[in-house]
Nucleic acid binder design. Structure first.
Lengths: 228, 228
DNA sequence: TCTCATATCGATACACTGTATTTCTCCCTT
DNA sequence: AAGGGAGAAATACAGTGTATCGATATGAGA
């Protein structure tokens, strides 16, 4: 690789904005997880010096906030279904799908209040779906409850998915036989209910489990709405 | 601080075990959050060299796993209430209280499968509470749903609490008037439902909100149990 | 058009991180 | 008493987030 092969470096600094920075950071995170996102690497991907980013963000945490907000744009449904139940379901599933596309989202979900424009828009969509169907306090409680559920469920799903990938075993195999630790623990007899669950339970796929729990929670919300 | 004031360093290396290591790590995390936990600092607190710890754990992540499991010992109820509903409620509240005592727990909750002895014991307790009240699959779904809820709810609560501390404003004040960003966003009129919630909603304390949502979810579980 | 001021970008610097590897020291066995 | 082996400590490395500072390039003013 001689001088002649290499292009001259750009004389003008490459133009930058938050959008480009966030896109680069998301690309890095999609490829290598959250810990692959470093200020230096993001800057390098943009042909800029690391310190340059600090004109646009003042802390790495803020970069994460921007990334989360950016993904919330994917979560926001293009058009709001009329049915409140369907609206909340769509929000939950969109969030889950976003987390499957961007697994690092699971690490950040629920970790900080989402105050970016897209985050607020998602909250607005959730509140709007229930608007008028009950007093405002009930509506708030409903939104909080549903989103607490799917936040937790998504985190667990991704955590399990990573564990499966790391061990190369499906959750089932790994609990059943090949996971030395768990097998040993179950064999002690100290966890009879857990053993029964592992050995007698049918293992449903993650999406079904997610949907089932979601429907239960939505049922609960429905019950509170009808009785204001 | 002259030589004469300082005691001689111990000639024999201080004895170590996982328990001591985890206790030191938890103490550090309680004082300064998760990011205050570094291998060097944990080791220093034990009068040991950093590398010593790697005889007991093989990665820092494993230290976090041990910390989480240790806290699960606080979560486990000393005696199981007969009522399934009460049992799950206690589990949820104990988890919440543990997270209030150890805020760093919120950062880790749901992040990885909890396979330590105490983590398994907590899961066992949850499953045992519902054992026999429905088919095993329903029971599993119920436990998953409830724990997804309280995991998510606790994370949000801690996230809000930190935000309030950081700004010095209560969530209410901060949304209402003093939070420049949120105020500005609400003033745009793009978030009518959100604005209504902020201005017309009564702000309940975190515990009430937690309990309310939990009861809803438990209602949903109850509904599924009675109809097997 | 030339000079100076100001803003911005990049380089350097610092204190720290997790962890691999090497060096040393002390104890036990022969 | 000597040798060997285990385990602790020191060193080393490749990174990290971010403060600070020096150079540079661009705009304004004369």
């Amino acid at each position: 690789m001689t001088v002649w092969d290499r292009p001259e470096p750009p004389t003008h600094p490459v133009p930058l904005d938050r959008e480009r920075i966030v896109a680069a950071a998301i690309a890095l995170a999609d490829e290598g997880g959250l810990e692959a996102v470093s200020v230096r690497k993001v800057a390098a991907r943009l042909n800029a010096g690391p310190m340059r980013l600090y004109g646009y963000i003042s802390t790495k945490q803020e970069l994460f906030d921007l990334m989360v907000d950016e993904v919330h744009a994917e979560i926001l449904p293009e058009e709001q279904p009329g049915d409140w139940r369907e609206a909340l379901r769509v929000l939950a599933h969109h969030t889950r799908q976003a987390a499957l596309r961007h697994e690092w989202l699971a690490d950040l979900l629920g970790g900080r209040p989402t105050l970016g424009p897209n985050g607020l828009a998602v909250t607005e969509a959730a509140l709007a779906a229930l608007d008028g169907l009950a007093d405002i306090d009930t509506v708030m409680r409903a939104v909080e409850t549903v989103s607490a559920y799917f936040t937790g469920a998504i985190r667990r799903e991704i955590a399990n998915l990573r564990a499966e990938r790391a061990t190369g075993l499906s959750k089932r195999d790994w609990q059943r036989a090949s996971g030395p630790h768990v097998t040993r623990m179950l064999a002690t007899g100290r966890f009879p209910a857990l053993a029964k669950a592992v050995y007698d339970g049918t293992d449903v796929d993650a999406e079904t489990s997610f949907t089932t729990g979601l429907d239960w929670v939505l049922d609960a919300v429905a019950a509170k709405l009808t009785r204001p």
